[in-house]
């Protein structure tokens, strides 16, 4: 049977991808942020997951406003990225895992979740920055990836409680897949930031810290927030907590071990959190 071996939360902000492109990891600005990744990569090298289920949001590369799914799942054999308009370098494609993708889709629909099913999608920095961070130098080509997209761009967006429940159903699907496989979950994006309007630049390190605590010990507390609550507390793009909640839902009931944590603010306009959670039992 498939087994979920851990969950990783990480930011996916473009500035991090650009820093990797330009080799800026060890500069004073980025050093504290990148310091967390070698121990996480060490854990990945030790555990050697076969598959990564990656929760991300599309920022107008593939899923633009004309047809914008609330929840979408990739069922493709591979995923390319592309020019997003502001200079991120394209990288070699991610490898898909169609069999588990379809198993998840079937399981979800049997359990009353109805995602958009995508057999041919490009993925943007929301997916490629985390992959590049966790498996540098294109070493992600050895791991199969299932991208799961959540709308964080246009209201109405799924409620935080719904993203958590959606993730929980995906976790149940993974755990009942008959193939032996080690699966790692990636919750990307966040934490506090606002890119738009006169309020641009707001950060809330205390709230970010609270969210990281509760994500481990009591995610139901975070599910009580509405998206507007999150916007008030952590800025318009704090809604990206959706992907963290989906990851945590998929990780399963019970309090996981928090193996690693890092938080740095600001990186670009964002409070950047990273956690490695290991489910117990």
């Amino acid at each position: 049977m498939a087994k979920i071996i851990g969950g990783i939360t990480t930011s996916h902000i473009p500035a991090i991808g650009v820093a990797i492109d330009k080799g800026l990891e060890d500069t004073p600005y980025f050093r504290d942020l990148f310091a967390i990744y070698p121990p996480i990569r060490g854990w990945l090298n030790e555990e050697k997951p076969d598959i990564a289920v990656l929760f991300y949001n599309d920022h107008g590369l593939e899923m633009w406003l004309d047809k914008k799914p609330t929840f979408a799942i990739g069922c493709a054999p591979q995923y390319e990225n592309a020019d997003e308009g502001w200079g991120i370098k394209p990288i070699p494609p991610l490898t898909g895992e169609t069999e588990l993708s379809w198993h998840i889709v079937n399981h979800l629909i049997e359990n009353d979740f109805d995602p958009t099913v995508c057999q041919d999608i490009k993925v943007d920095h929301g997916a490629t920055v985390p992959m590049t961070l966790l498996w540098p130098n294109h070493s992600y080509q050895g791991i199969k990836v299932i991208p799961v997209a959540i709308n964080c761009e246009r209201h109405p967006m799924p409620k935080p409680s719904r993203s958590y429940a959606f993730g929980k159903a995906i976790g149940d699907a993974i755990r009942c897949w008959e193939k032996d496989a080690k699966v790692v979950l990636l919750g990307t994006g966040g934490l506090s930031h606002q890119l738009d309007g006169p309020r641009a630049g707001i950060l809330n390190a205390d709230f970010d810290s609270y969210c990281m605590d509760k994500l481990v010990s009591d995610p139901q507390e975070l599910c009580k927030f509405s998206n507007v609550d999150l916007i008030e507390k952590g800025g318009a793009q704090m809604v990206e907590l959706a992907m963290w909640l989906a990851m945590r839902g998929a990780l399963g009931d019970g309090i996981p071990e928090e193996r690693l944590r890092n938080y740095v603010a600001p990186i670009s306009n964002t409070g950047v959190g990273v956690q490695l959670l290991i489910p117990k039992g």
């Binding site: 504290d32 006169p198 641009a200 944590r261």
Partner: peptide
């Protein structure tokens, strides 16, 4: 958008920042 120079905006971000907190 917030009526600041780029330098002022960076200073505003930094003023709310927090250094590294890690157990890694």
């Amino acid at each position: 958008q917030s009526g600041r120079t780029t330098e002022e905006f960076q200073a505003y971000l930094d003023s709310q920042g927090r250094g590294k907190t890690t157990n890694g």
